[in-house]
Amino acid sequence: MKKTVNIALPKGRLGEKVYNMFKAAGYECPSIEETNRKLIFENEEKCIRYFWVKPSDVSIYVERGAADIGVAGKDIILEYRPDVYELLDLNMGKCRMAVAAKKGFTDSKTSTLRVATKFPYIAQCFYDKKCRDIDIINLNGSIELAPILDLSDVIVDIVETGSTLRENNLEVIEDVVPISARLIVNKVSYKFKNNEIDAIVSEMAKQVENK
């Protein structure tokens, strides 16, 4: 008997693009395209069930087995280090993690660097490698405000086009790591639903190649 596979999609624009990719791969679910307030969408014929979750929560759903498959940005994977398999780079949602500061800022390295970020672990690792002493300021949004109001010297954040930075008179001073969306799989589900998951992954891999 075919087992139902649960897929956690990240809410938002990226999630919709990812769903379209699943759809093109043959795993459509018509009810998801209707406008309603349902939380879970199932296509019984294809043995597949989708749900939308907050992007930063995808890895939690997958790691704890509530979802068998999930799509999460590499930023989330690096920050939360979930114990999952990372089977595919979907090659979408491409951007980069970077250090940015007010235009003209140079790190004098004479005092502790104040770093505002949504990604404390990634920031810490990045500066640990350089043996730079930093003070992490953990924010949950509007990171760009921090250097403007002198809350921090620099920020570590995701940069897509850089236009938000430019408009606020900030600039990238260093790249940390490139980011894109990854397909992650729960380690135990991959054992017990191996055939089902492998079929989905290989269809998705074809989609990535065709793009």
Binding site: K187, V188, S189, K191, F192
Partner: peptide, 9 residues
């Protein structure tokens, strides 16, 4: 080792 129903090794 894994057993079905437990989401970790």
């Amino acid at each position: 080792g894994y057993i079905e129903g437990v989401p970790a090794g």
